[in-house]
């Protein structure tokens, strides 16, 4: 990767990350709403659906934890955006200085400190491992979410007359969480490359 393209690449990565995060946050919001709906339905179904209610409330809690992880990821993305912009500007400056310095040895010596400063500003201040830590946390929550969705499926079978509705809800929980897991995998791929462009 040439120096002139590294900043652009980081900027584009920040967009990809942010767009994925927005989708995950939307899923979290939906899980939360579904959880609320499930709790109300379980209450309506009475004692037989109490287990389903407990699992749904755990799923709501999980959606909040995931949202917190996504907010942390968002903050890192903001830092990445600022850093990538600064890097783009530094690349532009470095290129102009380099063009000027190529005219003679004397000019090169004169401009060297400025070029070094511009080069120093091309380092990203955000690193892949910061993203990976955040994603690992979200992944753990999601894996637990899958277990909860499975438990919800089992509990729905013992939920009396509302069992078919609750079974459908349990399926929806599982689909939403699987979808989040897919997004997290994509995020892992995107952020893994960050340091390659550093």
């Amino acid at each position: 990767m040439t120096i002139a393209r590294a900043g652009v690449s980081s900027l584009r990565q920040s967009v990809l990350i942010h767009e994925e995060v927005k989708v995950v946050i939307r899923h979290c919001f939906e899980i939360n709403l579904m959880g609320l709906n499930a709790i109300l339905l379980a209450k309506k179904a009475g004692t037989s659906a109490r287990g389903f209610g407990v699992v749904s409330s755990e799923l709501r809690q999980l959606s909040l934890e995931l949202q917190t992880a996504m907010q942390a990821l968002n903050e890192l993305t903001q830092q990445l955006l600022t850093s990538a912009t600064s890097r783009l500007q530094a690349e532009r400056r470095w290129q102009r200085l380099h063009d000027a310095a190529s005219h003679s040895e004397a000019l090169h010596a004169l401009l060297r400190p400025a070029m070094q400063r511009a080069q120093a500003r091309q380092q990203l201040s955000v690193h892949a491992n910061q993203f990976q830590e955040c994603l690992a946390e979200a992944n753990r929550s999601c894996t637990f979410g899958l277990v909860l969705a499975r438990a919800a499926r089992i509990e729905s079978a013992y939920s009396g007359q509302l069992r078919s509705v609750l079974a459908e809800l349990a399926e929806s929980f599982a689909r939403q969480i699987e979808s989040v897991l897919g997004r997290l995998t994509t995020l892992q791929h995107i952020t893994r490359d960050l340091d390659l462009h550093a």
Partner: peptide, 18 residues
């Protein structure tokens, strides 16, 4: 150019900058 990161980030919250 100085406000680009702030504008880009704010815009990204409501639309896809692409």
């Amino acid at each position: 150019a100085e406000v680009f990161p702030a504008v880009f980030a704010a815009l990204s919250e409501v639309i896809d900058p692409r």
